[in-house]
């Protein structure tokens, strides 16, 4: 059996296994949703802690409300909106992507793109130019 066939088999096996393993992943369970929401919502009386990380009474109360809302079938967006309505936007540990906050998302992508282009040039383009130049 040629090495190419072995590698093709390994690649197919990895893709199939990852696809099978992705079904019903931990991300989709109710407890995972609660864990995510608890990590996204800031403890109202703390400076920089999520409600998971704090045992302040306000954090404990908000944890109980999140549990109740998830049990009642609220979506993540609706829960986040309810918290923002009560406490303001700074209550979210992931700032909404609009306005000046867009920088937080655009800048890394732009920098990684630029750096990739620079590395690509270093690895490929520069040699072509050198070869072309003589």
């Amino acid at each position: 059996m040629s090495s190419r066939v072995v590698w093709l088999g390994l690649a197919v096996a990895a893709v199939v296994l990852l696809a099978v393993g992705s079904v019903h992943g931990p991300e989709s369970s109710a407890s995972a949703r609660v864990a995510y929401l608890e990590s996204v919502l800031k403890c109202p009386s703390c400076e920089d802690l999520s409600i998971t990380q704090s045992d302040a009474p306000s954090a404990v109360a908000l944890r109980h409300r999140v549990l109740r809302w998830v049990d009642e079938g609220w979506s993540d967006a609706k829960i986040e909106q309810a918290v923002v309505s009560s406490y303001g936007e700074a209550e979210l540990l992931v700032p909404p992507a609009g306005g000046v906050n867009a920088t937080l998302y655009i800048l890394p992508v732009a920098l990684i793109g630029l750096a990739t282009a620079a590395v690509g040039w270093h690895l490929f383009g520069r040699r072509r130019v050198e070869r072309g130049g003589g």
């Binding site: 990590s39 996204v40 700074a90 700032p95 906050n101």
Partner: peptide, 30 residues
Amino acid sequence: AFAVVVLLGTVFPLLVQALDNQQVTVGTPY
């Protein structure tokens, strides 16, 4: 890239407050 993202996320609340007088929090999910 990792270092730039960590630095940006760390100082972003400070920059937004200085430039836009807004309070934002950048936490674990970001």
